[in-house]
């Protein structure tokens, strides 16, 4: 498992670094003059080093002997990708809600929804914490730090 993961990571680094080099750097006349005046030189150096590390990961994965510890590392075991996607979606929805429908509506819906989704279903406790957190954050930012939040739909 670890061997395969490191192999994939190493194989992934190579095209990503090459793509970044090809697409993200300026083509200037300075490249033919001084190294220090070339804006592409330092990022190029970093990308080449990253590619070497990627190759190193692949080589070390291939050289590694299978042993009893194989599969214990490389990636962290026990991660639940489905929950990660759901969690990220919930956070994305909150950020979008904060932007489009305002702080109050988004926050008053998000805290109970995430708590419910994560298995905490005590309505009174959730309602109390939601109200306290929402009001406290609003008070700190708008009254203490004088920063207007997106209070209501725009």
């Amino acid at each position: 498992m670890k061997k395969l993961t490191d192999l994939w990571i190493g194989a992934g680094v190579l095209p990503i670094a090459a793509l970044l080099y090809v697409t993200g750097l300026p083509k200037t006349d300075a490249m033919e003059t001084s190294i220090a005046m070339n804006p592409a030189w330092y990022p190029w150096l970093l990308l080449v080093l990253a590619m070497l590390c990627g190759l190193g990961l692949m080589v070390s994965a291939l050289l590694r002997r299978a042993g009893p510890s194989e599969g214990a590392a490389g990636i962290t075991a026990g991660v639940r990708p489905g929950r990660m996607v759901a969690g990220l979606l919930a956070i994305c929805l909150y950020v979008a809600g904060f932007w489009f429908v305002g702080y109050w509506v988004a926050t008053l819906l998000f805290i109970p929804a995430l708590s419910w989704g994560l298995g905490h279903r005590k309505p009174a406790e959730v309602a109390l914490v939601t109200l306290i957190v929402t009001s406290l954050v609003w008070l700190v930012f708008t009254r203490l730090l004088l920063i207007p939040l997106r209070d209501w739909p725009f």
Binding site: I91, Y94, V95, F98, Y103, T107, F110, I111, L114, S115, G117, L118, G119, H120, E125, V126, V129, V133, T134, V137, F141, L149
Partner: peptide, 14 residues
């Protein structure tokens, strides 16, 4: 923990 995590998201977003 669920309430804590939700509060952290609110705080860092704002």
């Amino acid at each position: 923990e669920p309430l804590l995590m939700a509060s952290v998201v609110v705080l860092v977003t704002v």
